[in-house]
């Protein structure tokens, strides 16, 4: 087994508000790893810490947030120990990120050529004719028709789908081995969404890049990802291969998410999990999910479960997945 390309170990990212008087643990001790060429789906409701996890990896947390503990190893090197200057050299070159909104993430006053060429220019030192050729190649690889002409265009002259592909080209421009895609298709039409996902898959096959796919859409996970990690209230509650998790989810939250997946022709509401995601500043005691959990017991509201293995490369953070003895003990009480 090869060593993972990215390994996040016990990462904790905290937001400090009101001048230090309140600490919000947006990411609270998560661990996962990613091999080269692998795709990980990072799944959860909004506000569960997905985006904060991504920003921790690329080192662009907002001023109020800081990494309070753990490590992020990229090809063996700990990113949390890097200086801002070193992180800048890693961003765009080793890790790229695709943002949600294709309309807003391109600079309206620069043409496509400038925006796509920048990572190659600053990271790889490519200049003039070869830079031009590289941009053309990149645009071709994201299926932009007549790239030599298109690269003189400005963002407003392009459709939303095309812009999102440009954003993809920008991500590829520095030749990264890891791309973090933060809900890259939420603002696109369904047909364009499908095209874009196919494109990402093709690119992955061509370049062997690893992808972290942040989404709340399990359909996309099923289509795109090898493995998935389900986040709830700043913690990973279940992590394993997509096949295992879709087949027999261990955690009730995963079950609920899968149950709420939009089925074609179904009239059920999209997210059928009762209740609201918890306030991170004011988490319930015990398992953070227990107030909304259909299978919660007295034990769950008092004790926080540990992460336990429940199969090959498969972990869950739930009392139900714990060895039966502790559970039986609990049932006896209830």
């Amino acid at each position: 087994m090869t060593t993972p390309y990215l390994e996040v170990r016990d990462l904790q990212t905290h937001f400090t508000t009101f001048g230090g008087s309140r600490v919000v643990k947006a990411v609270d001790g998560i661990s996962f790893s990613l091999r080269e060429g692998e795709t990980l789906g990072l799944v959860g409701e909004s506000g569960c810490g997905k985006t904060t996890t991504c920003l921790s990896i690329v080192g662009l947390l907002p001023p109020a947030a800081r990494i309070a503990g753990g490590e992020i190893r990229l090809a063996g090197e700990d990113l949390t120990k890097k200086s801002p200057r070193e992180m800048r050299r890693i961003r765009g070159r080793k890790i790229a990120m695709i943002l949600q909104d294709p309309m807003a993430s391109l600079n309206p006053l620069f043409n496509i050529y400038t925006q796509v060429s920048e990572p190659a220019y600053y990271h790889l030192g490519i200049r003039r004719q070869s830079l031009r050729r590289r941009v053309e190649d990149l645009l071709r690889s994201v299926r932009i028709p007549s790239p030599a002409m298109r690269m003189r265009n400005y963002p407003h002259q392009m459709s939303g789908g095309m812009r999102q592909r440009i954003v993809g080209a920008i991500a590829l421009a520095g030749g990264p081995k890891l791309i973090i895609a933060d809900e890259p298709t939420t603002n696109l039409d369904v047909t364009i969404q499908a095209q874009y996902l196919d494109l990402l898959k093709d690119i992955q096959q061509e370049t062997g890049v690893a992808i972290i796919f942040v989404t709340h859409n399990l359909g996309i996970v099923a289509k795109m990802c090898d493995r998935m990690a389900v986040m709830y209230a700043g913690k990973i509650v279940e992590c394993g291969s997509v096949r295992d998790l879709f087949g027999a989810p261990s955690h009730p939250y995963t079950k609920a998410l899968l149950g709420s997946m939009a089925k074609l022709g179904s009239k059920e509401p999209l997210f059928a999990i009762p209740g609201q995601p918890p306030d991170l500043a004011n988490l319930p005691p015990g398992c953070a999910f227990h107030p909304r959990c259909a299978e919660a017991t007295q034990h769950c509201s008092e004790h926080e479960p540990k992460i336990v293995p429940c199969g090959q490369d498969w972990t869950a953070k739930c009392w139900l997945a714990h060895p039966k003895e502790s559970l039986r003990h609990d049932h006896a009480r209830a």
Binding site: R89, R91, L99
Partner: peptide, 9 residues
């Protein structure tokens, strides 16, 4: 944000 993500100076 994207410009920063590109790792520009």
């Amino acid at each position: 944000k994207l410009a920063r993500l590109k790792g520009l100076p």
